[in-house]
């Protein structure tokens, strides 16, 4: 089963295409990384995948053919948006209550145990938590929904290295222990190198080149590197 399938997907805001001619398949059980420079359309692609916006062209389905944004799709996908939006004026316990109320499944013991582990008191208001704790809270709420696909938009961009490590450890634990498929976007390549085992490159207004990410020069990704103006990674040497 493919957790995400897009064909000819495009999104236009006014006259500019944020994403164009995007065709990809992400098989289940992977930690897939969506990489590309700022403005390449990473967030646009994720928004289309979770159903926050509707495509201008093409189509995207999730979890084996469910239209993105349909009730069945929403039920199986958990999304942590950029900057981990939370109701900042509400206590942590209320955030848990709201998430539990808005979903058919919610693993309360898991959420409770995670918060205890993280040392987040349930009565504390969300805005009083540190950036790392807020990100962890958002991730906990998402994972407690027991999703089949976890979508993360720039999850670690605002975090310091320690919080970054902790966050990714939680994601990887969920992926390996519970078999959750993960799709995350990032422009921090070193982070992806450690966690991702599937790569989608976005450059300009297009996407594609899926493949295994092992080093900076995997055979399948080489073509991608050559074509994309990727600043943080040296282009692989061409071999005969």
């Amino acid at each position: 089963m493919n957790v995400v399938e897009a064909s000819g997907l495009g999104k236009r805001y006014g006259r500019t295409w944020a994403l164009r001619e995007c065709t990809l398949e992400i098989p289940a059980g992977r930690v897939a990384a969506l990489v590309g420079p700022n403005g390449a359309g990473k967030t646009t692609l994720l928004n289309l995948t979770v159903g926050l916006s509707a495509p201008s062209a093409g189509a995207v389905t999730v979890l084996g053919g469910r239209p993105a944004g349909s009730p069945a799709a929403l039920d199986g996908i958990a999304f942590v948006a950029q900057d981990t939006p939370l109701y900042k004026n509400l206590p942590v316990a209320d955030m848990i209550y709201i998430t539990r109320s808005l979903n058919r499944r919610f693993d309360q013991p898991y959420a409770q145990a995670r918060l205890d582990e993280l040392g987040i008191p349930p009565k504390r208001k969300a805005w009083k938590l540190s950036g790392g704790q807020q990100a962890q809270l958002a991730l906990t709420l998402a994972l407690a929904r027991r999703p089949r696909l976890l979508v993360l938009d720039e999850p670690v961009a605002m975090l310091d290295p320690v919080a970054r490590h902790d966050f990714m450890a939680t994601v990887l634990a969920a992926a390996s222990a519970d078999g959750v498929s993960v799709l995350l976007s990032s422009h921090v390549l070193t982070e992806l190198e450690r966690v991702a085992n599937y790569l989608i490159l976005l450059s300009g207004a297009g996407c594609g080149w899926p493949g295994q990410l092992m080093t900076c020069s995997p055979p399948t990704a080489r073509q991608a590197w050559r074509n994309s103006p990727w600043p943080t990674c040296a282009r692989p040497q061409r071999r005969r």
């Binding site: 999304f79 948006a81 950029q82």
Partner: peptide, 18 residues
């Protein structure tokens, strides 16, 4: 304004019903 719609509208409840 705060971006929390990206949380609320991706929950299982569905944004129109919400």
């Amino acid at each position: 304004e705060t971006g929390t719609f990206r949380y609320a509208w991706t929950q299982g409840f569905g944004r129109r019903r919400w």
